[in-house]
Design a protein around this nucleic acid. Structure first.
Length: 94
DNA sequence: TATCTGACGATAG
DNA sequence: CCTATCGCCAGAT
């Protein structure tokens, strides 16, 4: 019973994601930097994979090239479009 | 403590 | 536009 719950890293990332509003789209690298962990883009992805599908707006996070989540492109595209974001070919049009 | 893994990112071909 | 590689970070075993 020594579980400390969310790790410091997770807390920092969650804070950033909670600030995102409908229609907003950010990259993994941006989230990492904003959370105070520059260069940890990959760690952000791992985190969203583990605890993103719960209460976090994982669909508003894409790769640096606008690529959607591998394997969840359909779902992510559907959610983004519902927020007014234009998606094309598994990519976010910006 | 060591090693492996992966919703990434930048660069080269 | 594509795939292949290397580098980086945090988590898991």
């Amino acid at each position: 019973m020594d579980d400390k719950g969310p790790t410091p890293f997770e807390r920092d990332v969650v804070v950033v994601l909670e600030q995102l509003r409908a229609g907003d789209v950010v990259t993994y690298g941006e989230v990492a930097a904003e959370a105070g962990h520059p260069g940890a883009a990959r760690a952000v992805g791992s985190l969203l994979r583990r605890a993103g599908g719960g209460t976090l707006p994982w669909w508003r996070v894409v790769t640096s090239t606008g690529r959607l989540v591998p394997g969840g492109e359909r779902e992510q595209a559907r959610l983004l479009r519902s927020e007014g974001v234009r998606v094309r070919g598994g990519r976010v049009l910006g």
